[in-house]
Simulated assay, not measured.
Amino acid sequence: MAALPQFLKRYYFPIVTFSLGLFFQLFVLPRSYPPSHYDVLGIEQFAPIEDVAAAYDRLSSKWFSGLETPATTEFVKIRYAFELLSNPLWKRDYDLFNIDDQLHVTELLTEQYAELKFSNIPLPLLNASSSGLTNQAFNVLTSENFISIMSETKTILIQVYSDGSARCAKFISSWKSIAILLDGVADTGMVELGDVQLTSYLAEKKPTKQPFFRNGLPSLVAYPPDCKSSKCYVRYQGDLSVDPVVDWMATSVLGLPRILYYTKETLVPNFIAKSGQHKVKVIFFSKTGERATPFLRQAAKDYWAYASFAMVLWREEDSSIWWNLFHVESAPAFVFLKDSGVDPVVYHGMLLTLKC
């Protein structure tokens, strides 16, 4: 018997540590995660749509029979779970990658209908119409053609999207503009979430190796020049609008130089006077004030030994100054300056695909 206290003393710390770890995994950790939509309906994870409908029918029958009266918050959560999991595309996205880009609706509707009886809340809560992105998608990449396309391209920006995502549908017009602006310096491609093999390859990985998209969809992934594997691709984490995405591609992925803007006060002393005498000065007058397009920045990189580039925001009140200096009438316009005393060459309009 004397050996028992000695045994407990020797293994006291390992036993306590194991017990605490087991308690944490069984009771604390599960409660730290929010319930899934399947939990809300009281059914197993990944249950088929038939079970989703049956679970909702069981719950709603109690409400409409008067046996139970759900609070607004409870009703919205249950109804939302039912609508999401009974839509094949939304269910697919949620089951595969936990994509749930309409979740904010529950909080908004709970506040909006806080004073209403559940039976007076307008249904459905979600707009179930398909985004129809399949008909608008272009340069679609699949598991079958991905390797061959990657072998033929140097730089590519890939959008992972879902045909059932309202966010992706809203982004498609911006994506078309991005593709146009990158034309000539980088390729673009689109991957639908249903191509599980390819989307899993492009997704981030949790410690458990489960693929996921941290910021939901659409998700943008860029392969820099000569990158051919997931070890070197770059993921975009910023604002999903045209100018930030294009600037990120040009600066971070392609490594293209920025072209600075100058004013009527700074153009001559800070640009023309400081550029090498042997260099051609290329001045682009922009009517929008947006950043230089990747095509123009690529030209600045390719011809840096022979030319210097600058941008000027066109203002009508300064038009007489630019006319007297360079004979520029309006924007967009390009001015090419060579030697002092030689008249500048002026081109009004866009060159190739340059759009600013």
Rank of each mutant, 00 (worst) to 15 (best):
N120G: 06
I121M: 08
P122Q: 09
P124F: 00
L125D: 08
L126T: 00
N127E: 08
N127C: 06
A128P: 14
S129F: 06
S130E: 15
S131W: 09
S131Y: 00
L133Q: 10
N135C: 07
Q136G: 08
Q136K: 02
N139P: 07
N139A: 08
V140P: 04
V140F: 06
L141W: 00
L141F: 08
L141I: 12
E144W: 09
E144N: 10
E144Y: 04
S148R: 13
M150T: 04
S151R: 13
S151Q: 14
E152Y: 02
E152I: 05
T155C: 01
T155N: 08
I156P: 10
L157H: 10
L157T: 13
I158P: 00
V160S: 07
Y161V: 09
A166C: 09
A166D: 03
A166K: 09
R167S: 00
R167I: 12
C168K: 12
A169C: 14
K170I: 13
S174K: 03
W175C: 08
S177L: 13
A179D: 14
D183S: 12
G184Q: 06
G184T: 05
G184F: 04
G184V: 06
V185S: 01
D187H: 11
E192H: 08
L193C: 03
V196G: 07
Q197E: 15
T199D: 01
S200R: 11
Y201H: 08
L202F: 06
A203G: 06
K205S: 09
K209E: 11
Q210C: 02
P211Y: 01
F212E: 04
F213K: 15
R214M: 03
R214N: 12
N215P: 08
